[in-house]
Design a protein around this nucleic acid. Structure first.
Length: 453
RNA sequence: GGAAAGAUGGCGGAGUGGUCGAUCGCGGCGGUCUUGAAAACCGUUGACCUGAGAGGGUCCGGGGGUUCGAAUCCCUCUCUUUCCGCCA
């Protein structure tokens, strides 16, 4: 959540930011917070004064008793009755005002950075870069009307004969043909959205996980293997609770949640922690299964691997100083971009507009890969800077070197990468007459250079 | 699942109703000494709210209660450890 200081420092800037995010009632919400804050301060000042008086009397009674002056002590006690009641009243006022203030703050989203484009929906997101490889027909066809400058053709050895465009299949057909993924079996065991990976399909999963983890390790991220169920405090810490309660699977008996992303357990490592500035940036990566209920999604957008209830993802998380977080963010972007280049996939990077960004983000870039058989861009990574918004909830602070004071950290995270849509694009974009080609960088992890029937 | 013990500052560990935000040790930081380092010695060392400042307030796992006054007494919740049982 936003800090009170952010609001008092520059109220108008905060309101303008919230309007860019298309948050209705920004002015009213901010004014309400400020009013509750004043109420709380007033109540606290009254309460502090009464408490100070009470402490003084209590101390003097102690001294009088020690000196054996029982009568004077009894006399002093008489004054404490009303004082005690006053303190209780003021404390109640204070707690009520504080609760209203926090409750209101929790409903207010993060303020976007100035570089975030205006706009309301995904239509308004701005493509900032395009790159990678595509098959000839698709690159020339200007994928989905977007400018594809930067996307190169092929990049394949001569020994491969790409399937002609009209013969290319969507991944759900390929998964069946090559016996890689059994969606029906998943329905039997668990339900829709829980695919069963088989044989080379399972091996491809493992290869990608290892590849992504190895690349993250090379980039200096410490590998974490966290729990995949978390308690309520963790859910609140990273902001999934209370607003997105319905998105997570909940284990009733034990009141635990299945994680929707490794961001939750990994970022919560630093909940209620004060980090020495010299230790920043903290760089962590984690592979976990992710669980999403995703209620209310239907149609061809969710076919095959496009949207699942359970999937594998490698997440990178950084905790940094306010001064360096932007540089950190750029490093994360180039890390993710590097992965897509090594996988030889056509991709584009979008800077999300104010209205399409998540509740908690201050700046967010999406990575999308072009799926040649589906003729669609698929989101495979979302890389965000949360500024102090998450850290404020997490109470994640650092001790500044220069003055030894504590200040809120910035938190960042990004997928690097989520598997299912990468698998979809890899299968669809690498169809050849003799099988499905595996990009060079992935071959050592997969153990061979193609998927065969 | 059964039984017992416990939860105090970065860590260890005192403190059982009255200047206790808390003795002490370690660690950290500053200094003396040293060519440098170590050792030794001296000093310093929690977080949060409020206030221009002086100051005031809150915090000894969480919540509630008793009392003029609670780290200390009572209730309750959570967690941890040990032993037994079960299991990978």
């Amino acid at each position: 959540m936003l800090t009170l200081k952010q609001i008092t420092d520059d109220k108008q800037a905060v309101i303008a930011g919230l309007e860019k995010k298309h948050f209705a009632g920004a002015t009213e919400a901010i004014e309400a917070v400020l009013q509750y804050s004043e109420e709380r301060k007033a109540a606290q000042q009254k309460k502090d004064a009464a408490s100070a008086e009470m402490n003084k009397i209590a101390k003097s009674i102690g001294q009088l008793m020690a000196q054996g002056k029982k009568d004077e002590a009894e006399e002093a006690k008489k004054h404490t009755g009303t004082l005690k009641q006053d303190i209780a009243t003021y404390e109640k006022e204070m707690a009520e005002a504080e609760k209203k203030q926090t409750d209101t703050l929790l409903t207010i989203p993060n303020v976007p950075y100035s570089v975030v484009p205006e706009g309301k929906t995904a239509e308004d997101n701005r493509a900032v870069k395009t790159g990678g490889f595509a098959l000839p027909e698709d690159a020339q066809a200007k994928m989905n009307g977007f400018d594809c400058e930067g996307i190169a053709l092929g990049g394949w050895d001569e020994k491969w004969n790409p399937q002609p465009a009209e013969a290319r299949l969507p991944h759900w057909d390929l998964a069946k043909q090559y016996n890689l993924i059994d969606f029906d079996l998943g329905v039997k065991i668990s339900g829709a959205g829980f695919p069963v990976y088989v044989g080379q399909g399972a091996r491809l999963q493992r290869a990608l996980i290892n590849f992504f983890l190895a690349e993250a390790a090379k980039a200096g991220y410490t590998e974490i293997m966290p729990p995949t169920v978390v308690n309520q405090d963790s859910g609140y810490g990273t902001g999934q609770l209370p607003d997105k309660e319905g998105q997570m699977y909940h284990c009733n008996t034990d009141d635990l949640y299945l994680i929707p992303t490794a961001e939750v357990p990994v970022t919560n490592i630093y909940r209620d922690v004060i980090i020495e500035e010299s230790k920043l940036p903290v760089k962590m990566c984690a592979y976990t299964q992710c669980f999403r209920r995703e209620a209310g999604s239907y149609g061809k957008d969710v076919r095959g691997l496009n949207r699942l209830h359970e999937f594998s993802k490698i997440e990178i998380v950084r905790i940094d100083t306010p001064e360096h977080s932007d540089a950190s963010h750029r490093e994360m972007l180039s890390h993710v971009e590097g992965l897509l280049q090594k996988l030889e996939l056509p991709y584009r990077i979008l800077r999300l507009c104010g209205g399409d960004m998540s509740f908690t983000a201050a700046l967010c870039y999406d990575f999308e890969v072009y799926s040649e058989a589906q003729k669609r861009w698929l989101e495979v990574s979302s890389t965000s800077n949360f500024d102090t918004y998450q850290a404020n909830r997490l109470h994640c602070r650092y001790r500044r070197q220069e003055d030894k004071k504590t200040a809120l950290c910035h938190t960042l995270n990004g997928s690097a990468l989520a598997l299912p849509r990468i698998v979809a694009a890899l299968l669809e974009n690498n169809q050849t007459e003799s099988g499905i080609r595996i990009p060079k960088a992935l071959q050592p992890y997969f153990g061979s250079e193609m998927i065969v029937k």
